[in-house]
Amino acid sequence: METESMKYRYLGRSGLKVSVVSFGNMTSGWADGTEEWNFQCVDKCIRRGVNFFDTAEFYGFGIAETILGRNIKQGGYDRDDLIITTKFFPSNFGIQGLSRKRLRQAIDHSLERMQLDYVDVIYLHRFDAEVPLEETIRIANEIIDNDKAFYWGTSNFTPQQISECFTICEKHGWIPPIVEQCEYHMFRRDIIERDYVPLFDQYGLGTTVWSPLAGGLLSGKYNDGNIPPGRLESSPFAPMLKQYWDKYIGSRKEAALRTLNGLKAIADELGCTQAQLALAWVIKNPDVSTAIMGASAPHHLEDNINSVDVLDKLSPEILARIEELLENRPAPSMHWRTFTPNPPRR
């Protein structure tokens, strides 16, 4: 269901159109009582034109897939309007990795949990150094040939590993990956803005980026330099939050708080929230196909979806002011014909 305000982009060089913001249910299944609020989030997304829903067999050890499937069935939505993706982890606490044997079983188990005949995209959730990549890509193509998925991609692969995927596919005439799922936010820019640029140029690779708010640090909740009471005790994702905090705040607190509060001032000028500004900044990048949102409540999701309305407010002047606050633009690669740095892509 396409709405007036939602924007869509093609996922890589495929014919698949995805909303520029999407929903990931990584937090579903790790705690009791998540199914109902997850349905409210899914329903909110669909009513606002979001059509891309991301999950993984690893999330809640299968429970997140089950919940998403039940939510889709509960809402009675038109499956043709939705883009559903899942990911397969190298071990998933077994010994077979991303082997032909394991992936044949994994796709059937995922579809059974989600009560679906197919997913739109399957991802290799991490690179598996113990299984020949050729074997893994062969079975990814077999899954597509059997109409259990339409496309495949990678998640958290290095540029070299992704390039190897394309080389293998070109050698055998197989369907190549169309997308990579990686981290991207105002504090982590090197992957999208430097490392993958040759892949965007050569292969038209799409991206579905995760943690666009840096684990919530860019939401505005931490601008006073403190973690809200109970946040590190009440969530199964507390170790991830602590890791983000230590990496981006704790080690450089004064500078980080200056950046966060500077972003809040710009957001206030634009008439939006800091979270909306941070999300809009991510999807302003043309190399981002969609930014995957998480949410602990439907009203947070509503705020995040409205980031689409901020896109047109990010003028070159505003983007320059944001750059002055961030001070972390990756050094551009060199254009070796002219011996000058390549211009920024944003």
Results as ranks from 00 to 15, higher is better:
residue 274 Q to Y: 11
residue 254 E to T: 05
residue 277 L to C: 11
residue 235 S to L: 05
residue 330 P to C: 14
residue 312 D to R: 06
residue 333 S to H: 06
residue 326 L to N: 10
residue 297 A to G: 15
residue 304 N to M: 14
residue 253 K to Q: 11
residue 306 N to R: 09
residue 275 A to V: 13
residue 260 L to D: 02
residue 225 G to I: 07
residue 232 L to F: 02
residue 309 D to R: 04
residue 325 L to M: 09
residue 312 D to M: 02
residue 253 K to D: 06
residue 275 A to S: 11
residue 307 S to Q: 01
residue 324 E to C: 10
residue 301 L to M: 01
residue 275 A to E: 02
residue 293 M to Y: 04
residue 270 L to F: 03
residue 262 G to V: 06
residue 248 Y to P: 01
residue 336 W to M: 11
residue 252 R to Y: 12
residue 259 T to Q: 12
residue 277 L to I: 02
residue 315 S to W: 02
residue 278 A to H: 02
residue 281 W to G: 05
residue 247 K to T: 15
residue 303 D to C: 10
residue 248 Y to G: 04
residue 261 N to E: 10
residue 249 I to L: 07
residue 243 Q to F: 04
residue 309 D to M: 05
residue 336 W to E: 13
residue 338 T to S: 15
residue 305 I to H: 03
residue 304 N to E: 14
residue 263 L to V: 01
residue 275 A to K: 02
residue 245 W to C: 00
residue 302 E to L: 09
residue 293 M to I: 10
residue 323 E to Q: 06
residue 296 S to A: 13
residue 298 P to R: 08
residue 225 G to P: 15
residue 309 D to K: 06
residue 272 C to M: 00
residue 256 A to W: 01
residue 282 V to R: 02
residue 318 I to A: 04
residue 308 V to N: 06
residue 298 P to T: 06
residue 256 A to V: 01
residue 316 P to G: 00
residue 300 H to A: 07
residue 243 Q to L: 09
residue 296 S to N: 07
residue 246 D to A: 09
residue 333 S to D: 12
residue 335 H to G: 15
residue 317 E to S: 11
residue 335 H to V: 12
residue 299 H to G: 12
residue 281 W to T: 08
residue 307 S to A: 09
residue 294 G to T: 01
residue 335 H to Y: 14
residue 226 N to V: 14
residue 339 F to W: 14
residue 308 V to K: 00
residue 329 R to Y: 02
residue 304 N to K: 08
residue 320 A to E: 15
residue 305 I to K: 06
residue 247 K to D: 05
residue 334 M to I: 12
residue 264 K to F: 03
residue 318 I to V: 03
residue 337 R to P: 11
residue 262 G to T: 05
residue 285 N to G: 13
residue 243 Q to M: 10
residue 238 A to P: 00
residue 314 L to P: 12
residue 262 G to Q: 07
residue 226 N to T: 15
residue 312 D to W: 02
residue 240 M to L: 04
residue 270 L to D: 03
residue 251 S to G: 12
residue 306 N to C: 11
residue 287 D to A: 15
residue 330 P to G: 12
residue 230 G to D: 03
residue 329 R to M: 08
residue 268 D to N: 10
residue 253 K to T: 14
